[in-house]
Structure formats: C-alpha cells, structure tokens
C-alpha cells in the first residue's frame, strides 16, 4: 500500500512539474504545427498503458538503449511509465483551461504594470480549477494503472508489487476476499487523495 502511494506520488509530482508549465506555455503561444501537436497531446491523453509499458520495457531491457541503467523491474521503471501515461493528461487539461482564460485579462494586467511572467502566473491562477482537474485526472490514471506497471515492474513481492498488481495476483489465485479488500483499500486511498485536492480547490477559490 505504501509502495502504491510512493509510486503514485512521485509520478504525479514529475507529471505536474513537467505538465503544468508545458501546458501553460502551449496555451499562451502560437506557432506553426500547433494543431498537429494538440492532436498528438490529445492522443497521448488516451495512450494504451500496456503499449507504454511495452515501449518502456524495450528501452530499459538489457539489450535496450537504456539497459545499462538497470531500472527494469524496479520502482523507477514504474514511475517512468506512469509519468509517460499521466503527463499528457496534465498538459492537455492545463492547456485547455489556461486557453479558456479571457486573453483580454493578460493584456489588462500588463497595462497595470504586470511583467510577462506575472501576467502568466495570473492566467494560471485564473485557470486553477482546470489545472486541479488535470492533476486529479493524472492521479486517477496513475493509481489505477495495472498493465504498464506489471510489465516494467514485474509485480515482485516486497519490491515492485503495488495494490493494483496485487489485486490481479490475488484474483488469479482465487483469493477473492483478499483481492476485494485490496480493491477497497485502493478506492479509499483514491477517495482520500481526491478529497485533499478538492479541499485545496475550495481554499484556492476563497483566496
């Protein structure tokens, strides 16, 4: 259970650290080929996790280009796969919510003496609800992910077994009661995490 949280938390932190700035930047700049990039990001939001797992597996396997990192069947490999799955979600949702902020607002803030940076931060703060939805979506995809973490983590007992992969294993063994209990724990964790994020959202709304 703690491993589940550890993997989820680190993957979410990485996804947010990359996804929020990239999404904001994409929302506020215009360049050639942007539509194609948007389509790619939206595709990324629906990446089949097993395919991500397979590609990460191939890259990290002994004969793969990153094989000498020896990350395969470790937590690190699982986090890598999760970040690849969740980042497009965070980027895509951040991008569309920042884009929904009235463009006139940034101009008016500039005319009140905001630097470019300050006006961009203000736009991101305006888009805060959308950004949090993006993080919630990223969190949801990470904590519920099975296929990719099974492939690259190997579901090794005491090392890379997480709640979802444990549920798969216990179900196969016929230990339905254990599997069900694990499932309930997973749901409770997910609910608790979302509750914290929603509370944070409420706090932001008051400020």
């Amino acid at each position: 259970m703690w491993r589940s949280l550890q993997v989820t938390a680190s993957a979410l932190v990485f996804s947010a650290a990359v996804g929020v700035p990239v999404g904001t930047w994409l929302a506020l700049t215009r360049f050639r080929g942007q539509r194609v990039l948007n389509a790619l990001i939206y595709t990324g939001m629906g990446l089949p996790p097993v395919v991500v797992g397979l590609v990460v597996y191939l890259f990290l396997s002994n004969s793969g280009p990153l094989g000498n990192l020896a990350w395969l069947f470790t937590i690190k490999a699982m986090v890598v796969a999760q970040v690849i799955i969740a980042t497009p979600l965070v980027v895509g949702v951040t991008m569309s919510s920042v884009r929904a902020v009235d463009p006139a607002l940034r101009v008016q803030l500039r005319a009140l003496g905001a630097t470019r940076w300050q006006a961009t931060v203000a736009a991101l703060v305006e888009a805060r609800f959308g950004v949090i939805v993006g993080l919630v979506a990223g969190f949801g995809s990470i904590i519920s992910e099975v296929g990719a973490v099974m492939l690259v983590g190997g579901n090794i007992d005491g090392r890379t077994r997480v709640l979802t992969t444990a549920v798969v294993l216990e179900t196969r063994r016929g230990n339905f009661d254990v599997a069900l209990a694990l499932g309930i724990i997973l749901l409770t964790l997910s609910f608790a995490a979302n509750l914290i994020m929603v509370m944070g959202q409420g706090k932001l709304a008051e400020s």
Binding site: Q108, A111, L112, V125
Partner: peptide, 20 residues
C-alpha cells in the same frame, strides 16, 4: 523598463477582472 511602465495605468472598455 518595468519601473517606467508602472508609471502608466490603463482602463479598458470591457473590464477583465480576476476571479478574486
């Protein structure tokens, strides 16, 4: 400079306010 820009202030026809 930003300090010089800050000697000016503008009001627009359609005000865009922060959601605070």
């Amino acid at each position: 400079s930003i300090a010089q820009r800050r000697l000016l202030a503008m009001v627009f026809q359609r005000p865009a306010l922060l959601s605070r």
